[in-house]
Design a protein around this nucleic acid. Structure first.
Lengths: 383, 383
DNA sequence: TTGTATGCGTTATCAC
DNA sequence: GTGATAACGCATACAA
């Protein structure tokens, strides 16, 4: 790594006036001369507008409380002076930071990246900034981050598929003490608001699709043990298969929900005698796809593969992956809305009014090239 | 989307004591009774430790200034009381927020996701939180975000491949006024610190590799017009080819640096009579790969493909993509370090001491299955 | 080395 | 509807 210190020549064009002395006297309104917008305080605005600081404050933060004429005048003056409220001072007295916080296991995981994008967009639309923390898949660190960052934000959104329930319990209490709303993504928990994906319906759609294509023996490559969404999807799988004649679901086991996990799962698919496999998520499915190809198993001619989430990479491979589309950006936006709602409910209502809500995000199967009609089989059951 | 308000039954197990009255009297040390760690102020610590607030402050923020015995005592007391400094109050007086800000065009783009991850990790290691903003590929929004968020952080890291130089110039000035260091990623600019990738060397390695495999006619699928890294890579390409006998570089044009752009580029590859193609980045290369496959062009037997960046998806496809590995996480970490350096230099040194530094991040070609020996050709030049 | 006192910029509480 | 004034919690200049 080379270090390249660039041109030692200072700007030659305009002369930037840098004040060499620090003025520490009482507010000497730096507004005379275009010295910059730095340090324009509310008092400056008030003075320039000929009103008291209190009125100036109200004119900007609670316009309804001030007479229309004055209000507009103050706002005009503030604009001219380039006034920008000091967030620290405001926070110090209101207790609100104007920031939200998002904790995810891995920013590079396209699933969380999409959620983060949605969260960020909605937060900004509401005039809030977003602190993002990556826990590096470490539940312990997640808890620490929530506790740490929770102190400097108005609300926390936590994506923590694998944090033990007990830790969650504790976090919930801490957060209640600190009066900072905590929202869970893709994981419900008693007493906490959450936004979750409809796992059972997604699985149902996937199974129905495969069944319609003639598949009767379907493998499931599961996610990590202890993952809430995995247990949900297993449940959905059972439920869905109950309604269909002659179907058999083969549990291929638990796998890390990444590409590498899919490679391992791929071998079990090949060995399991199934004609189709549903993976816990797309990364896993892509790994399976890759492994099957390497072993010379044709997809979808010999085996059909279905993923979950519909991450961008699902369309980059060939055959493109049939998968369950999860509106991740919407999930993120909804999370913010619900969090805000929880926050304002907390201040409006007495101690604990209504329990925090939980929102279910609908999903939709999108059929691509990785699924096809089941290969002819030695039929084993009579019709 | 269903709305499911969960169980209306309050907690039945433990009884959570919620204080129904708000204590507004002078500090009545809530430490008696385990009422919670909320509101433990420095004065409380001072009182409990039997020292003045000033000493308590120093014991925690400037330990060297207080006698060892007292110091440890105060720290102990603070720990026991669960004291946590109020960031707003601290910021109000010190002017430092303890936050950095990162602005990227698209959080879902694996390139920026990786950078963000590195930035976040390093920031946390330094005890700083990270505000992340996604500009949705809109340079105008980027400028606005920097201006807006810059006011509430100690430094800004900007990834803005396509922002016009003029806007950058203006941002640089604004930021200088606000006294907030601004650092550019993958884009140098006079007067601003930056961390950039070694584009010319990456291209050189790629060309050398292809040349060694016997390729003599190599296509380049470029990035967007106005992209600094694209112009750098084109320059590197020229330079690299000058040193090699009998080589010809074919400019395939400018493409949006996404999968779809690669699809378009793929057709030109097929039509251009080249035996190898170097893409501006991996997404583009993946699109080319996909298009070539769709058209029945074998990779690498007929055409070799090289990408740039080495995003995770590069190994998910088959054939796996030969590409130039960019240590993106390191890039992010370096950005933070350099930004901090710039920040402290700003306060330490008089007005403008030394111009901000620029760091060059080295890259390395990683050879995978998408490149192979050049097909036999109708040799056109004598040896 | 330690304590006292002041101020950071804003909003909230009161009187008017 | 408006203005004086007191906090908010902390760090620091200054005196001791």
């Amino acid at each position: 790594m080379t270090r390249d210190c660039r041109g030692a020549v200072p700007h030659a064009g305009t002369t930037v006036a840098v004040a060499p002395v620090r003025v520490l006297q009482s507010h000497s309104s730096a507004s005379s001369g275009r010295g910059g917008t730095v340090g324009v305080t509310l008092r400056d605005v008030a003075r320039a507008a000929g009103v008291s600081p209190a009125t100036a404050s109200r004119a900007l933060s609670a316009p309804d409380l001030v007479a229309p004429a004055r209000r507009e005048h103050v706002q005009q003056v503030a604009r001219e002076l380039g006034y920008r409220p000091n967030r620290a001072a405001r926070e110090l007295i209101t207790g609100r930071t104007g920031n939200l916080c998002l904790v995810v296991p891995d920013l590079e995981n396209p699933f969380f990246a999409a959620v983060a994008k949605g969260v960020q967009a909605r937060a900004r639309a509401l005039g809030l900034a977003l602190l993002v923390a990556d826990s590096e898949e470490d539940p312990r660190l997640e808890a620490e981050l929530v506790a740490h960052l929770g102190a400097q934000v108005d609300g926390v959104i936590l994506c923590s598929p694998r944090m033990p329930d007990l830790d969650l319990e504790r976090l919930g209490r801490e957060v209640l003490e600190d009066d900072v709303p905590l929202l869970l993504v893709n994981r419900p928990h008693e007493g906490l608001p959450s936004v979750v994906i409809d796992n059972t319906d997604g699985v149902r759609q996937a199974v129905a699709h495969l069944y319609a294509l003639g598949h009767r023996r379907i493998g499931y490559a599961g996610g990590p043990v202890g993952s809430w969404s995995d247990s949900q999807r297993r449940r959905g799988l059972e439920h869905a298969s109950h309604g269909l004649r002659d179907i058999e679901v083969v549990d291929l086991g638990h796998f890390p929900p990444v590409f590498g996990g899919g490679v391992a799962a791929g071998d079990l698919v090949a060995a399991g005698g199934v004609t189709a496999v549903l993976a816990h998520n797309d990364l896993l499915a892509l790994g399976i796809l890759s492994r099957l190809r390497a072993r010379g198993v044709a997809v979808p001619e010999q085996v059909s593969v279905v993923g979950y989430d519909d991450i961008p990479a699902a369309t980059l491979v060939s055959p493109a992956l049939t998968t369950v589309t999860v509106p991740l950006a919407r999930l993120g936006r909804t999370a913010v809305d619900l969090l805000i709602e929880a926050g304002s409910a907390r201040t409006t209502a007495p101690p604990s009014a209504d329990p925090p809500g939980s929102v279910l995000i609908g999903v939709e199967l999108v059929v691509r090239a990785s699924t096809g009609v089941a290969p002819a089989r030695s039929s084993e059951a009579s019709g």
